[in-house]
Design a protein around this nucleic acid. Structure first.
Length: 275
DNA sequence: AGTGTATCCTGCAGGC
DNA sequence: TGCCTGCAGGATACAC
């Protein structure tokens, strides 16, 4: 999906322009995107004002008057698109649209419809958010705290990174890219990482996430920014999706393996497996 | 605790 | 060209 950098890009585009706007009407074209009936969804959101646009993990968080919270998880193919000129043009696979006052239409579109738009009370959202792990770019996640979390698990490190309750916002692209940069094999047990490997992994993870945010995310096929643009980080991927290509560091052929039923990409030379 | 499998969906690339 | 299979940025539930 849209992982942390992709959602962060959307938030940075919307946060300067949405607060203060009011939701005049809501169209639900795809009810299965909601966690409730379209009727109650519309009734609860109509007339409310957007106070703040933020992000938690891979989730776009709209704080609304009421107060209530609208949490948008984009699944694999979700798009959040702002039609700021009121063209009225509908994006492909439009699922839900919010007509705003004084202007603008905010669309949620999703080809595969794995995404969800969920409403929460502020306290219920706090509880849901508390079930997620720390933000990888947050100050609270020190190398020591990261190592401590890792030490409690015997899962392969790539699976560990994808578990949102361990560290929040990392998906398959950036998990693989961070492991390559840190020269750690994806199947290595999380709890077996040395302190130095853990520190290296955290630094690599932060670097790759920051670089991807700077590039406005990674567009492989579906991801778009809130203004319909593509993310440029696809050109900077070193191993993800590059099976059969030479490793950018040593020219060894990049390999694809399957871990927990999902692809992992690695350079077998740079990321030597530890038994 | 962790894995494999299935599920929710659609689109697309590649093989034949 | 057309059909079929496998695969895809995610999350969750289940059995083992």
């Amino acid at each position: 999906m849209p992982e942390l950098p992709e959602v962060e890009t959307i938030v940075r585009q919307l946060a300067p322009v949405l607060p203060g706007r009011r939701i005049r009407s809501v169209v639900v074209a795809r009810p299965d995107l909601l966690g409730e009936s379209p009727r109650s969804f519309r009734a609860a959101l109509r007339g409310s004002t957007i106070l703040e646009v933020g992000r938690r993990a891979k989730i776009l968080v709209l704080s609304l008057s009421g107060p209530q919270v609208l949490a948008v998880g984009l699944g694999m193919t979700g798009r959040v698109l702002l039609d700021d000129s009121d063209s009225g043009e509908l994006p492909p696979y439009r699922g839900v649209s919010f007509t705003l006052e004084p202007s603008g239409i905010l669309h949620y579109a999703d080809a595969r419809r794995f995404g969800r738009l969920r409403r929460y009370s502020p306290s219920a959202w706090e509880e849901a958010s508390a079930r997620l792990g720390p933000e990888p770019l947050g100050r609270g996640l020190t190398p020591a705290a990261f190592l401590e979390r890792l030490s409690r698990s015997r899962a392969p490190i790539r699976s560990w990174l994808l578990d949102q309750s361990r560290v929040a916002g990392v998906g398959n692209i950036y998990a693989n890219e961070a492991l390559f940069r840190a020269r750690i094999h994806p199947a290595q047990a999380a709890g077996a990482l040395t302190a130095s490997q853990a520190a290296q992994l955290l630094a690599s993870l932060r670097a790759v996430l920051r670089e991807a945010i700077r590039a406005q995310g990674t567009t492989l096929r579906d991801y778009r920014t809130a203004r319909g643009g593509r993310g440029g980080f696809s050109f900077s991927l070193r191993v993800y999706g590059r099976e059969g290509s030479p490793c950018p560091a040593c020219k060894t052929t990049v390999r694809r393996i399957v871990l927990s039923n999902r692809s992992a990409f690695l350079c077998p030379r740079c990321q030597a497996e530890v038994p």
